[in-house]
Design a protein around this nucleic acid. Structure first.
Length: 380
RNA sequence: UGCCCGGUAGCUCAGCGGUAGAGCAGGUGACUGUUAAUCACUUGGUCGCUGGUUCGAUCCCAGCCCGGGCAG
């Protein structure tokens, strides 16, 4: 499907790009942050609320949805969009990561992965064909290939083996998507670059997969425990070797500052559970660093989390009230914090897009980072 | 008025001869392709009061004070 991704502008001072990705369920303006909705819901918020805060595209997860409630059920009920009431684009992770992070007794062979469900212990096999069939059942707009995500740290030999196995699976996933008309119908399939901390393996992976002409490319195997500078180094070691005219996606990242730094490296898509997870634990993001609303200093604070920020939470509720809700374990706390944090992330991406268009992304993002880090330090 | 039971951290309670613990609450931190409204750490105490026995008492004994119950 040619032309599904359009580069609108390249930043003169950095590798940042302003782009536009077309999917079956709408257009996505990049750089973009994708809220994570693992089990067919972005935890604590409704699709209408997601729409209101400007979400363009969300994630679903093959591993989880396949175990429960099952992809055939979702297919029979009209696909994931209809099932969960979200009409925008959906990217589904292949489940490769979950198999490594959750499942017990897994056995990885060239054909695929045999593992036990973390829910009921049932033995399940996931290979390239299975993963693509599931994502087809879900009706995913962007399907991810099955990959092997090596842990950190990882020995070079083990890493090379994971990289090669991932390539084998990527080819099979792509072939399956061609065969069954998945790609022809306008769905996308993204490949995943592994390589752990070995720059040459990452480069090799980027070039090998790049030659296969996938609709998009992800950088995987990051945020698996390595220090932040190492993570950013891996991303920077990969992006220059990916096709310039395809969208790039770093999986599972990151903090607001990391997002800006990766945009400057040339990444277009991000997803991360951080804003939604910490939201349910009473932490809110602000331009001056993260704010733990459970702290006693907010007990009588009548101000909103961020003065003047245009989201439902900041328009209507005080820090004191949000602190109360969180300490009282009220469900509304999770909802209001999630609305705020996701809006903060999405608004940050909107600002980044605007500054790339305006041509002053470099200066703007440096200033933004300084303020955020100064505030984070002062808060401690 | 008598008899019985109880008084230990902010709350609910454990401990019972060697100067005290838990859960919750409170405080702080963590959270990065979600098994997370989760997890970790942590501040709090003249063990009701006064005597006695003992090398040593939150613990045993006596009296008193304060709750609760039963009897009258």
């Amino acid at each position: 499907m040619p032309g599904h991704f359009t580069l609108l502008k390249n930043d003169p001072a950095t590798a940042a790009r302003r782009g536009r990705l077309t999917t079956r369920h709408g257009v996505v303006e990049t750089p973009v942050f994708m809220p994570v909705g693992t089990q067919g819901t972005v935890k604590a918020v409704t699709p209408v609320q997601l729409q209101e805060i400007g979400a363009q595209i969300i994630l679903g997860n093959t591993y989880h949805l396949n175990l429960r409630p099952g992809s055939e059920l979702i297919r029979d009920l009209g696909g994931l969009h209809a099932f969960m009431g979200w009409n925008g684009p959906i990217l589904t992770d292949s489940g490769g990561f979950q198999v490594f992070s959750l499942a017990k007794l897994r056995r990885v062979r060239n054909e695929g992965i045999t593992f036990q469900s973390h829910l009921d212990g049932a033995t399940i096999f996931l290979g390239p064909r299975e993963v693509m069939a599931i994502q087809r059942n879900l009706g995913s707009d962007i399907a991810m290939v099955l990959d092997e995500c090596p842990p950190w740290p990882c020995a070079r030999d083990a890493c090379r083996q994971a990289v090669e196995r991932s390539h084998r699976w990527a080819r099979k996933c792509l072939a399956a998507a061609h065969e069954n008309g998945f790609l022809a119908a306008g769905h996308h399939v993204f490949a995943i670059v592994q390589g752990s901390t070995f720059d040459d393996l990452r480069r090799e992976a980027a070039e090998t997969l790049g030659a296969l002409d996938f609709p998009g490319y992800a950088i995987g195997g990051v945020s698996v425990g390595e220090p932040e500078p190492e993570m950013l180094r891996q991303v920077a070691a990969t992006t220059p070797h990916l096709p310039a005219d395809k969208p790039r996606y770093t999986m599972g990242l990151g903090t607001p500052v990391q997002l800006l730094k990766m945009i400057a490296i040339g990444v277009d898509l991000f997803d991360c559970v951080l804003p939604t997870r910490v939201a349910r634990n009473g932490l809110a993001f602000t331009p001056d660093g993260p704010m733990n609303l459970r702290n006693e200093r907010f007990r009588t604070d009548s101000r909103p989390i961020v003065e003047g920020l245009d989201n439902y939470t900041c328009r209507h509720f005080s820090r004191a009230y949000l602190r109360h809700l969180s300490l009282a374990n009220e469900m509304l706390a999770g909802t209001l914090f999630t609305i705020h944090n996701l809006h903060f992330y999405l608004d940050l991406m909107a600002q980044a897009r605007a500054h790339i268009e305006a041509g002053d992304f470099d200066a703007w993002h440096r200033a933004w980072i300084s303020r955020y880090e100064a505030g984070a330090t002062a808060g401690r």
